[in-house]
Design a protein around this nucleic acid. Structure first.
Lengths: 346, 346
DNA sequence: TTGTACGCGTTATCAT
DNA sequence: ATGATAACGCGTACAA
């Protein structure tokens, strides 16, 4: 038993150890590891054996110093507990893993650090980053200036050469609006979240849907895109002087809170009021009634964003200054039982 | 306009650039950056100015080569989409951020790579890792052997000197069982997930609760801890020859599926059957009836695990071979409307 | 085909 | 208090 089972960290074998064990030079080992060259049968076997015996794998940091690549990609999320973002991370994680890249995850809601400093720190540890959180103007500028490969989630266009991924929120809201309109709704409340960039777009889409028909749309605002906020504003939305016959929430979490509270207040859904949200989070299926929503392809969004990011990283080696662009993912209304037909007005 | 706004990545300033600009040596700059020494008013100002002007920050890889530290910590999760794990990550992320560490996230469900290889690759890029996924025996051994600081989620004890965090599942299930027993339930089904280590512990706890009373407990098994699986086995659990008057699921996701499907099958919850789960995921509040569950302090678990990990990392420098141990977090039954009183048996 | 030697950016050691 | 310099582990021209 020469092997002491202590918890002390033992130092991994270096390329020199392998070279020595195999009786070749470090250069030979390096070329062997990184492929791209053929060797004598003899040498090949000895190196293979040495690598195996010593359990060698190259030191990512030392390698990174030479190549300028970290082998990591970053993803900056506002709040991982929002299932929409969770799925986004899931999709991104899958593609990254497949490409042999590690995922550096940052939840901005947890950072006491100012976001600019956070991004600067992150930028040295990754080859590129997906930004899905709202970032300040200076941070955006710095990111642009630093030349780090970035893919934005959402229709951000902070200049040409920028890459972004997301669905057309105005069109999505238009679809949902038409669904409600076709069901006979005319008095619609929108529980928006002005802290998010797209809330306004969704509000626009809703207005588009009801344009030219005798309707009353009203805008409310929550302070965070969470279920608790949906609960908080429920009574002010539902029990006002001229209550709506349908409520659209900025996202499913808010809708969940509204739905629960509506029922607690004695309203029947959808008989008294229809409720709908955005994102098609899986838990919308398990409320009763199940929640009508708009699927925004969360997981596919993450996958696509990561693919685009990897493209940009790979291209970074070349001289081509890769053009920007936007991937628009198709949204889709998922009609469930929380929205129902309204009788024709008297 | 000397500043070309192209997307090309520009090289960050090095410590040598700063040294030259400030008219001092690199050693001085290094000491200045890392603090811990006093300088001449003169030097201090010049270095500060140079750092600011050049926007210098040290290269983590180069620094890591010397210090042997990466500044990253890893977290290995089975499935980020399970809200329990999402919260775990959230908690861990918070503590890591506060400690200035970056979080390297790995979802094993997405890895085509065998977990051992995945862990080996990860181990070179982090200073320590939280393992929350079930890992194979060889992977466990390798981890132990490598001497990388590790904190396990759950009552893993792969030897002394190991650190782990988790709640007492048997005790937690005992509590839930007593709750059901006190409500008058005697025929209880457990929808376990034998793929998870604790499922057996929870089953044990349930049996403990009903020991010595005339009861019938029955064990079912799902193939994944997801809502769809709860739906899948619902009919076989609920519509069998001698149906249960209460069903306990391995976790809330399975319970959600069971609850939805039970209602779809025409059963009233809790009048016809009580349903309960584990983890206290937030969406259990928004079903109707709301889901009775056992809170396992998901977020606190993540925080605690990360704190323990950081302790181990910091101690790694010293010679003390830090003792192992287990943090037991207190679980708590959250009784909601999905469990109800049963009439005394005839 | 294989080996030598240099440089990547930093910290630590030792001398001043 | 400050400076010179040797590592750290690796990739890669260049020489052989």
């Amino acid at each position: 038993m020469t092997d002491d089972a202590s918890t002390r960290r033992r130092k991994p074998a270096t390329i020199r150890d392998v070279a020595q064990a195999a009786g070749v030079s470090t250069a030979t080992v390096s070329k062997f590891i990184n492929g791209g060259q053929r060797f004598t049968r003899e040498v090949e076997e000895r190196v293979t054996a040495a690598v195996r015996d010593l359990g060698y794998s190259s030191n990512p940091m030392a390698r990174g110093m030479i190549t300028g690549q970290t082998g990591n990609v970053g993803i900056v999320i506002l709040d991982i507990c929002n299932p929409h973002f969770t799925s986004l991370v899931k999709g991104a994680s899958r593609v990254a893993a497949r490409a042999g890249l590690n995922l550096l995850f940052t939840d901005t809601a947890e950072g006491h650090t100012p976001e600019l400093a956070m991004l600067q720190a992150l930028s040295r540890r990754v080859d590129g980053v997906i930004v899905s959180a709202r970032v300040s103007e200076p941070a955006l500028e710095w990111l642009q200036h630093a030349g780090l490969p970035v893919v934005y989630y959402g229709g951000h266009q902070p200049g040409p050469g920028c890459r972004s991924v997301g669905s057309d929120n105005r069109a999505a809201a238009l679809m949902l609006g038409r669904h409600l309109r076709d069901l006979g709704h005319r008095r619609v409340a929108y529980a928006g979240f002005s802290g998010a960039r797209w809330s306004a777009e969704r509000w626009q889409g809703l207005q588009d849907a009801f344009a030219g028909c005798d309707s009353a749309l009203r805008l409310f605002d929550v302070e965070a895109a969470v279920a608790e906020e949906g609960e908080r504003i429920a009574s002010s939305v539902l029990l006002c002087a001229e209550p709506p016959d349908a409520v659209v929430a900025y996202n499913d979490l808010i809708a969940l809170g509204l739905l629960g509270q509506a029922q607690a207040l004695g309203l029947r859904v959808p008989e008294d009021v229809s409720i709908a949200g955005f994102d098609n989070i899986v838990y919308g299926r398990y409320t009763s009634p199940a929640l009508t929503t708009v699927d925004t392809a969360s997981e596919l969004t993450g996958e696509t964003a990561m693919q685009r990011l990897i493209e940009r990283i790979r291209a970074g080696a070349d001289t081509a200054p890769l053009p920007g662009g936007h991937d628009t993912l198709v949204a889709r209304v998922i009609a469930r039982r929380s929205t129902g037909r309204r009788a024709a007005r008297t």
